[in-house]
Design a protein around this nucleic acid. Sequence first.
DNA 1: ACTACATTTCAACCATGATGAATAAATCCG
DNA 2: CGGATTTATTCATCATGGTTGAAATGTAGT
Lengths: 206, 206
Amino acid sequence: MVSGRASRGRRRGSPDTRAQILAVARSRFLADGYAKVTLRSIAAEADVDAALISYFFGSKKGLFGAVLGLLANPPDVLAAALPGDPATLPERVLRAMLGTWDDPERGRQLAFMVRAATQDAELMGLLRDVVGREMIDRIAEQVGGPDARHRAAAAGAQLAGVIFGRYILAVEPLASMTADELIAALAPGMRAVLYRRPRPASRRTM
Amino acid sequence: MVSGRASRGRRRGSPDTRAQILAVARSRFLADGYAKVTLRSIAAEADVDAALISYFFGSKKGLFGAVLGLLANPPDVLAAALPGDPATLPERVLRAMLGTWDDPERGRQLAFMVRAATQDAELMGLLRDVVGREMIDRIAEQVGGPDARHRAAAAGAQLAGVIFGRYILAVEPLASMTADELIAALAPGMRAVLYRRPRPASRRTM
DNA sequence: ACTACATTTCAACCATGATGAATAAATCCG
DNA sequence: CGGATTTATTCATCATGGTTGAAATGTAGT
């Protein structure tokens, strides 16, 4: 808590100060979000001068970006769930997604990243690319057929909705349903969207 | 820009300063978000002393809340779309939702509110209540039957996904599909989720 | 050892949100 | 109308927080 350091200049040995700042920042940002956390508090907890953060990361946003980089990782969970019997693809994908997000630590990180993305245009662009390329395009090439991308986009929207509703917004009953209940409720919809051929769109209601 | 006012005390006449501050704040918040906008810049644009904002609204958050109150409005669009032939309910609901969000001004406001909600726990709670009560519960009582709430939640998740994917994240191809294409792609899924009886869940795949 | 470079502390800056006192207009009440 | 009270407004000032620049001190290269 109390740093009480006196001497100026470089410390002895090779203390990985940068990594330590990053670790503290990670835990503080995850716990309290971006705005509430002050650089000075991070510096204090890391037993380091606040100016060091600017030195290493340029700015508070820079530090935040570094933390995000620490967290960012490819969504290969989805990729692993795609191959297999097309008839049960929705179940596999949903189970994979729910499994990842329901893990407490992992889910906290992912939710945090989504929240962060809604606050910053640049991060939003990043997330957009990842979702578009790694999720929708992958699903599209798996299902194939006419309108593959449109179908995949619809399925992606369903996944996004579960994520937003259950993990970000935490709205009932989405938040408290079990994974099996969710899969039972959602899989038919995803199957319909992916594999049912749309009717010719003539004769629309209303 | 330059206020240049000298005299202290109350102004002459009955200038509705409060409303003017609110108007400026609204446009600035909508344009640049919460964090980027400074009270002083709002005050300058409204040709008003910055302290007046604290006087009228208590704090920056208070001002923000007032702006949100200005924007907040019940989702009766959905309510109006619910009654009618159950077979085409998904089409009606989707069309109503897309119509509202595709309106530029209205869509900007709604997207803004969702973004705001992801930044503040209190606002998040508010949005959660609205979505839970005004959307999911309404849909549930409309479809009825066993598991009505679960089915409604699944449908709500699909709607939320479209909103998040198309209007917040703006991911392709969701963002550029026409309303008709989206309805064609999504309605079967929503119909399946609302009206298809789930299979008994025995004999699960994987 | 000397020099170049990396790391660290300290002091200060400046912008921001907030507060309190002083002042002036508007309103109320006789 | 005239004083008391309430409401609106300005100014000065504070505390906090991100950022910067200079100085100090270590480490590495030659």
